[in-house]
Design a protein around this nucleic acid. Structure first.
Length: 494
RNA sequence: AGCGAGGUAGGGUAGUCUGGAGUGCCCGCCGGGCUCAUAACCCGGAGAUCAAUGGUCCAAAUCCAUUCCUCGCUACCA
């Protein structure tokens, strides 16, 4: 057992629209890691939430003819519902429109960066598309026109605050090359390194309040400017645990052991964020895990195609465990993966029901019929458990590999039944076979807990055992739980 | 264009660093076994010029060179 703290975060998504299935993937991945660290004995804390200060939210609200806060309230609720329904075990759902807890921290960070001399005023010149309300670089334009609106962007000059990112180029390089800030997977780490080596430019850290429609965190001492959304968004990771408002709690959990993010925002987390923290003289997070994106039936998700999958709809028809299992099992942790309902059903029927549910069902039937109250025997089946592989793949964040290693033990249990044929046995040989199988299921209930917590709990209940931790994943020579078969763990999906 | 990652059976992957029979896993397909179990479970089989060419070596998916193809990153996208 360890007493170390483990603070983990999901990215905080823009809430300009309802959650899609990609958000569900991130929630599940983060939760699996968190729960694994739970059974490893860490004291864990998980932050999730919503980035509400984006201009996208302002625009989305205007399109719907409602207030921005109302839109954020509405959509944040959907994200929170998703978190609940998918069993994301979060400790805090933190919204960046929270003026009491978020603004003080975001402004404190800003002041500290000013004190370090890293924020300065500069005239910003850029190509601004009125339709997009955003700036474009020359490379992004198609024939000199905005790729979306096919209009010529205006040249706009505006005085903004800039963050002196260039100053941190060497420090960032050293930080990431040395692994002091770990980036999973390796390929993303390489991308970040090559980006840094290409030379870092200072970035615009504020916008005019006018252009931001007055929405966002004001720059301390200059109400005409609003903080650039990324600065305020990143600080939710520290503000949510008390930076600027409850430094005691903040010190308890920070630094984060892991930020889980989508691959598209790697740069902000691996470059901007550590630079801001260095400037503000705050400790740095330990690791970043960038997952891939989901396609749907082989196509990129898009509103235009109309193939966006809302995970809340999926959870109307399928259980949290079925969705969680599928997302981890079929999606490589780091690569893009393809989502399809058919594949989800196949996994649920073949593996959750056919292998896990059926294993429990056949063993508990035989155990009940045996009439035994306690079971003893030698630990032959335990040798098939690859606990080391489970731990090493987890430490590399290869969650699909971790799950596969757990599942291969399920297969060994089923194989063991076929080989031993306990239905033909009686006396000591029967007791030994049942002992091994019951211990096997008990261990599985622990190892499956991070992935399918509801089912794992049911398994422990059926065995009459308590949910254990990693130290309990060994066979103990004796099984004394009170076995009750009860209902099936899964029903077949048609 | 530059930098990076890849191309292994019908699909998806591991193996490559540290060369040693195409070795493994998942889905799909075909055949058999079992009857404890939710038509679930177990075993066996078919299916691959390991992208191509050239080289090093007793020996190459693995090392070297070249070519072709795919994907990612290249300043504000989960």
């Amino acid at each position: 057992m360890t007493n170390e703290n483990f603070y983990i975060t999901t990215a905080i998504p823009y809430v300009n629209a309802a959650p899609h299935i990609g958000h569900a993937l991130e929630f599940v991945q983060t939760d699996v890691i968190r729960r694994f660290y739970d059974i490893l004995g860490y004291k864990t804390f998980l932050l999730t939430g919503a980035d509400e200060n984006s201009l996208k939210n302002v625009r989305a609200a205007e399109a719907l003819k409602i207030g921005t806060q109302e839109l954020c309230d509405r959509n944040s609720l959907l994200f929170r519902q998703l978190a609940e329904k998918i069993n994301l075990k979060y400790d805090i759902f933190f919204r960046s429109s929270n003026k009491d807890k978020h603004w003080p921290g975001a402004q404190e960070i800003w002041k500290r960066c000013v004190d370090s001399g890293d924020i300065y005023k500069k005239e910003y010149e850029g190509l601004y598309c009125v339709g997009c309300e955003g700036f474009y670089t020359k490379d992004e334009l198609v024939d000199g026109l905005c790729p979306e609106h096919k209009t010529k962007p205006e040249e706009v000059k505006e005085v903004n605050y800039f963050f002196r990112l260039s100053k941190y180029q060497d420090a960032l390089l050293q930080l990431i090359e040395s692994g002091k800030l770990a980036i999973f997977p390796e390929s993303r780490k390489n991308e970040v390194l090559s980006f840094i080596k290409g030379g870092l430019e200072d970035f615009s850290a504020s916008r005019s309040a006018e252009r931001a429609h007055g929405w966002g965190v004001p720059v301390p001492g200059d109400p005409s400017q609003i903080q650039y959304v990324w600065i305020d968004a990143l600080t939710t990771y520290i503000n949510g645990i008390g930076f600027g408002t409850d430094m005691e709690q903040f010190k308890k959990w920070w630094p984060a052991q892991l930020h889980v993010i989508g691959k598209g925002i790697t740069r902000f987390h691996a470059i901007y964020w550590p630079a801001i923290l260095m400037s503000a003289k705050v400790e740095l997070p330990k690791a970043i895990f960038a997952h891939g994106y989901l396609t749907v039936n082989g196509e990129k998700m898009s509103k235009t195609i109309g193939n966006v999958i809302n995970p809340l709809d999926v959870l109307e028809k399928y259980s949290a465990d079925e969705l969680r299992y599928y997302l981890i099992r079929d999606m490589p942790s780091f690569e893009d993966g393809d989502f399809s309902i058919q594949a989800l059903k196949d996994r649920a029927n073949k593996e959750l029901l056919g292998e896990i549910g059926n294993l429990v069902s056949r063993v508990l039937t035989m155990a009940e019929r045996s009439g035994l109250q306690k079971y003893e025997g030698d630990n032959v089946l335990e040798k098939k458990l690859e606990l080391e592989k489970i731990k090493t793949t987890l430490s590399k964040m290869e969650l699909h590999e971790t799950l596969e290693a757990v599942l291969s033990f399920v297969k060994e249990c089923n194989r063991y039944i076929n080989e031993e044929a306990p239905w033909k046995l009686s006396g000591k040989p029967l007791e030994t076979a049942l002992y091994n199988l019951l211990e096997g299921i008990r261990v599985l209930s622990i190892l499956l807990y991070p992935f399918i917590p509801d089912t794992a709990g049911k398994m422990a209940d059926k065995l009459g055992t308590k949910m254990g931790c990693i130290e309990d994943c060994t066979f103990r020579g004796k099984f004394e739980g009170k076995v009750v078969k009860g209902a099936h763990l899964f029903e077949k999906l048609e």
